[in-house]
Design a protein around this nucleic acid. Structure first.
Lengths: 191, 191
DNA sequence: ATAAGGATGTTTACACTGGAAAGATATATG
DNA sequence: CATATATCTTTCCAGTGTAAACATCCTTAT
């Protein structure tokens, strides 16, 4: 133990999540490591075990905060735009573009603890917001299913697919100028 | 070198891709390793270097074959269904459900050589097929853009998002009975 | 036919990884 | 103040991808 840092860090859990998130965007999911995070926080590489259990626990914590942040941004954007909830979709895409590696990790199947209660809760929150958007857009999927109907499923599919394909660079940039996701919604209800 | 196996394997490239694909679905992208593949093929763990360069090269080869197979399945499904090209979408979803780990890898951003010419060619093939579907469905995105228009972008986004969310188990199974992706397309043109 | 050279695999070595186990230190609780 | 618990370190291990040097086979030109 060099320097004069204290034996007990005090804020390790918080700082570790922050470090992981920064390194995640810098090096990608595959380039991220516990040891790099630990070095950045200034702590031994086994310290996170007490707080997260293992790597999957850390990534789950990072992703859970990601969903919470996504929900918050969707909500505040919708409020700013005079209660037109569909504008939350623009915030959704912006979040994915600003945090591409994190966004990918949020939909990973083999790196997270997918049944973690906090994670499931935050995912559910996002789904509710998107369902509200579907309602505003009149997406009932033919038969007006109340919850988890075809309209909600179709909308989340479209938004998620667009987010991932755009951040992956699958569409030519010259074709993406001057319009947002609201302009490609099949029923054409933009502004 | 035990056994009577020959020094030169003869089919290493082919067998390595097959082994990688099997282990990919068994252990996930994160659980896959060159050494496991090599052991399964019966060869030293550095042998693939001659054929693929590195891990990213192997994964790129696997994924490239994945896109080729996806295109082939979409085409033959559309032909079987009396030239209704939109049925290719069902084949697309089926492919993702049968190869969930591979499908995820096909859209990974930090594990592939994303500018590999063969890979880009196969991706382009799939995009063309999907564009044909968009045409059949009348998805022109408002203004009838010729290529890479909003209709094509919207359709691939919806199909990809649906494929990934379904294979990730994000929708409740009891809400997914008795219908296919053709039934959630916003303009409702199924059969 | 045969020698030369390229293609294909192996051996060895190394830096890096996540995790387990045991010990050290600080904080909380009686 | 004493004891227990939470937090962090040290040490160790199996597993990973990759580079370099070497071994073996195949092809091809003479």
């Amino acid at each position: 133990m060099t320097e004069d840092r204290k034996y007990h860090h005090g804020n390790l859990k918080r700082d570790f999540v922050d470090a992981a998130r920064i390194l995640l965007e810098r090096d990608g999911v595959h380039g991220l490591s516990l040891r790099k995070c630990a070095e950045r926080v200034g702590v031994s590489h086994t310290a996170p075990k007490n707080h997260f259990g293992n790597m999957a626990g850390l990534l789950t914590a990072v992703v859970t905060e990601g969903y919470a942040e996504l929900a918050q941004k969707m909500r505040s954007e919708a409020e700013d735009r005079n209660q037109r909830r569909a504008h939350a979709l623009q915030a959704y895409i912006a979040f994915a573009q600003e945090n591409p590696a994190l966004y990918d990790l949020m939909f990973s199947r083999d790196r997270l603890i997918s049944d973690d209660p906090n994670l499931m809760k935050q995912i559910g929150t996002c789904f509710v917001i998107l369902s509200d958007c579907a309602t505003d857009l009149g997406w009932h999927g033919g038969s007006a299913d109340a919850q988890n109907g075809k309209g909600q499923i179709a909308l989340w599919s479209l938004v998620h697919g667009y987010a991932q394909l755009v951040t992956a660079g699958r569409f030519k940039k010259e074709n993406m100028q001057g319009w947002s996701i609201l302009d490609i919604l099949p029923n054409g209800s933009a502004d």
